[in-house]
């Protein structure tokens, strides 16, 4: 079967099966080649994983609020 014949079949798969197929294909490709494929794009990472100053301020906000509740 050629790629041209395969693509319409893939298009008809549901999202879950497409993800499974993607995982299967990714496992067939060497890591170095995968890195070349994905390094061509930028992907936003929204997780504020190192926002320690914001964390400290939020913790102070929580402590201040707890003290206010205690004294109320």
């Amino acid at each position: 079967m050629s790629l041209a014949e395969l693509i319409p079949l893939v298009n008809n798969l549901n999202q879950s099966d497409k993800l499974s197929l993607f995982k299967f294909l990714a496992a067939q490709i060497p890591d170095a080649e995968l890195q070349v494929i994905f390094s061509a794009s930028e992907y936003p990472v929204w997780s504020p994983y190192d926002a320690t100053e914001a964390e400290n301020i939020l913790m102070q906000m929580i402590r201040d609020n707890q003290e206010e509740s205690t004294h109320a």
Binding site: P44, V45, W46, S47, P48, Y49, D50, A51, T52, E53, A54, I57, L58, M61, N65
Partner: peptide, 19 residues
């Protein structure tokens, strides 16, 4: 009124504390 500095690609986004 509590201003929070975020990090990473959220660094330019203004944020404020809210319960």
């Amino acid at each position: 009124t509590v201003r929070l500095p975020l990090a990473g690609n959220l660094a330019r986004v203004e944020a404020r504390g809210l319960f």
